[in-house]
Design a protein around this nucleic acid. Sequence first.
DNA 1: ACCACTATGTTGTATGAAACAACAATCTCG
DNA 2: CGAGATTGTTGTTTCATACAACATAGTGGT
Lengths: 402, 402
Amino acid sequence: MAGATQATLREHNLSLVARIILGATTSMSRADVAAATALTRSTVSRLVDDLLAGGLVREVAKVGGGLGRPATPVVADDRLCALGLQVNATFLLARLVALDGSVLAEETVDGDFVASDPAVVLPRMGACGVRVAAAAGPDRTLVGTGLALPGIVRPGSGTLLRAPNLGWSAVEPGPLLAAPALGPVLLGNEADCAAVAVAHPVPGRREGPQDFIYLSGEIGIGGAAVLDGRLMRGQHGWAGEIGHVCVDPAGPACPCGSHGCLERYAGLRALQSAAGLPVTAGIDRFAAACREGDEAATRALATAVSALETALVSAVNLLDIPAVILGGHLGRLAGLIAPDLAERLGTRALAGRFDGPTVTVGAHTGTEDRAPGATGAAITVLEGVIERPAAWVPTTTSRLRR
Amino acid sequence: MAGATQATLREHNLSLVARIILGATTSMSRADVAAATALTRSTVSRLVDDLLAGGLVREVAKVGGGLGRPATPVVADDRLCALGLQVNATFLLARLVALDGSVLAEETVDGDFVASDPAVVLPRMGACGVRVAAAAGPDRTLVGTGLALPGIVRPGSGTLLRAPNLGWSAVEPGPLLAAPALGPVLLGNEADCAAVAVAHPVPGRREGPQDFIYLSGEIGIGGAAVLDGRLMRGQHGWAGEIGHVCVDPAGPACPCGSHGCLERYAGLRALQSAAGLPVTAGIDRFAAACREGDEAATRALATAVSALETALVSAVNLLDIPAVILGGHLGRLAGLIAPDLAERLGTRALAGRFDGPTVTVGAHTGTEDRAPGATGAAITVLEGVIERPAAWVPTTTSRLRR
DNA sequence: ACCACTATGTTGTATGAAACAACAATCTCG
DNA sequence: CGAGATTGTTGTTTCATACAACATAGTGGT
């Protein structure tokens, strides 16, 4: 509702130029940016100078080669960075990510946080974050912190409504971290954050798939939907939450209050217990049992695939996003389930009947990373810097007034 | 990717002012607009003058009353108008809608267009449109035409991929209308258009629900999802297409290629045949049979409600939109099914467990209108005018250059 | 070695959109 | 009938981008 002024215009172009430079896989000169934006070279020059002063980008050595005056390449800088935190059922992780996408530092604290007390766990998470943030050193600026949580987050309000596997309800994690040095803390659902990391492995860069449904296999199953590189949030912020889609109304009860939810069949705990494995077994042992032809494990896997099929057919058709990415333990099982799942979905997807190629199902590249949510949380914070760079550009008269 | 210039700034503010004036339920003065936008009165004055010249708004008689100099109220004008066309299984309809939301003229052509030839039907639709458009007269400008179709439309490309009930495939309706006087023709899915009409009964005005899933009950069942007043399109443009969500994998075959689709249970034809009524019976006769306690009709209704429940639970949870609006024959049945459906959805929706009020299910107000899609198609075209008003403002130097 | 050529980046001026300030217009109220 | 209030208009200022000219720094041919 607020009218646009020249400051708005400037901020918009500043963001545009930042996004182009940070998003490019190859370094770009001012002239390249001018060609890409249809702005004039003089305008781009001015904007780039501001971004240089703000620490978002830096110049690198001129590279000759072509005809004419050699260009001055400008690339992403690593002076601005954000901290990504992730609280999970089995570990806490803090990761410091710079604006150029590089990971500056990282620390993991293992533990069992099922049915834990947020007032105990979150201060530990905060302390861990402070230790990692120290790696930024005096030359870098920490712009903020993102916290990925395995639960439902009320968007904007800084409140975690419910994290079933942690046993947390109505928690306000920001103050509980007890780490003011970490700056403003942005909350996010773990699957949402991980999905952001898939679509934007580097801040500002659109790389990898831009339209997909993400499934995060943990104790439960989280989900997120990304459309044209942007997270679909829905009215309350849990659009794409596929773990509690009902697969069978007559199925087993779920702590969420419903019956026969997807995660009762394809969640890690569900798979392990159906296969007769201890809860501590881990997904690799389950996968091994399947490969060895263990009957219970094979049956559990088949049940999980059918449940995934039922839930994902609805999702693919309703959201009109014919691509699925498997993360967490589901990503580790991708070799066993993806081909089958893709075929079944393909025959039942609306898209397949018009658009030729049917549904694709792939694993999150980098399944060895335990905490893609931490990276995604940090990247979300950094995307905010790219979205409104004026706040970080030392201008003569502050232009940030929102 | 195009940089923003001062022309962009101006167009943005022009659109903003237009949206505020057209969207207001009460008339607004220039000073009111200035207060609402945080622009200065002088700037608003200049923008309003342009909108006056462009025919988007008009001044009405000053209304005294308060203190100070009386304001000059500015309201939506009806000089610009758009034509909405709708092709359905049983009728063609053309409706001329002005920018102020008033319907200037309308004509219906009844017929049976199931398994018809687009090369025959569309010219008739075009001729009908031309007759209705003539009502604009010499003083009005027809800005364009929207065409609502009961099928899948490839967004942007002007192609209808498939309309099962018409028996059409891969049709390009624009040229087939053979009516160049109607201007550029914008295609849309019937349910999408109807949903737009629900969220924006008047161009530029956000009135009524802004977050809902729309179900359009025709021979088949169309669906659309509206989030924050905007249509969710998905990657191919059929997000929210709920008619072909699978309710029972073992159910009856559907022309779409799948099995047990929702519309096999809750489509008009399905209800009629399950109740033992002739296909020409009409929905009111079915409703009467239900109210009289006819066993077959009652059973058919119960089956339909269960199917709707199954399909909508997925939709409500995946899209995170806890409101359903019933249109077409489902709207006419709302009295019979809405309370039951709302209760069942409420207990199974994720939202209900945190946000208090659960899922709402309501009928499209104005269920007597046979063709909300035609209105929505016209409104979509008019929203385009509001979005980029510069094209219609006679400026000294053309500012439209996109 | 020299000069034409080419592309990059900078500088100064012009255009134009909104902000700002002052003022004219037109009502109500005492 | 004048004080006060609110609206709308009219210059003037500010500032972001466009435009044009130029300095810069290379390549490549002679």
